[in-house]
Amino acid sequence: MALSSSTTPASQNTLTVITAPAIQGRRLPRLSLKITIGLVLLGIFVLMAIIGPIVAPYDPSAIGPDVLAAPSAAHLLGTTNNGQDVLSELLVGSRATIVVAFVAGALATVLSVIFGVTSGYLAGSARGELLNMLSNIVLVLPLFPLLVVLTAFLPNASAWIVAVVIALVGWAWGARVLRATTLALRNQDFVQAARAVGERTWRIILFEILPNEIAVVAASFLFTLIAAIILYTGLIFLGLGNTNEWSWGLILYWAQNEEALTVGAWWWFIPASACTALLGCSIGLIGFGIDEFINPRLRAAGLSRKELRTMSMNQGLTPVYRDGARS
């Protein structure tokens, strides 16, 4: 959704670049620094979600004697006003946050592929235009308020339901980008050849068009992940959804309700905020990397300042360095 305007231009301009690697060979490019850092960070968070609840030193809901204690050896990230261990809350809460993000992201991506690619391929026909109009409507509806109203009618909705609701309202942006990409792809020779041979529509979409759009699908998946994290955390922060299930949003909800910052308990508030931002940042970095892969002109890493300056100022054509030579 919102976070993803960065991929819009790429998808509009660089179809030749997208199709080339898929056709020429299976050689994967070397990972850029951004992707590496992003993947490592994301890996740490996923690991945290898997083993976090097991290694958490305390029961996050258990009330302890140390009230509002600053970080110490016993409580590495201090305690809340009920003596609950913030580190344990953070570790246990990581699972819900990450599961919601991935479930919502995956579902929304499936929906955006169905709507975007199909409406792009069938553009001009009644079915195609109908699908396109549907995604335009969902795109224009304000996401967060709609989510708030829907969840408010589902009191104590579990994280799974919230994830499904996020996916149901959040797929439209990806659909729009995929539609634009498909529109440019559908008249390429290999698609026309498949059509001439008499392949079925769903087969052309799945096996001819989609493989050439993998990078765009991946970029839209990543940005849906960030959106889902922000929306889920925001919802729980407002006190919607299930407020018995630990997540980073719930830590912030209690911190806000008990005025953590006013009493100076920064350790209650900062870790969950920082983790949310870092998780989003790691995904964003991978997204940047993918953008640069789709549209090599965007690449800046690895080139010296002087080279870049020469590149953009004195030559109209931006040289694209082969992978391996630089970066």
Binding site: L3, K34, I226, I229, I230, T233, G234, F237, L252, Q256, L261, F269, S273, T276, A277, L278, L279, G280, C281, I283, G284, L285, G287, F288
Partner: peptide, 19 residues
């Protein structure tokens, strides 16, 4: 500095607000 903008973007709005 571009990558740092993702950090700001992914930061929950209310966190920055409350800080």
């Amino acid at each position: 500095l571009l990558p740092t903008t993702t950090f700001l973007q992914a930061m929950p709005y209310f966190c920055l607000g409350l800080v």
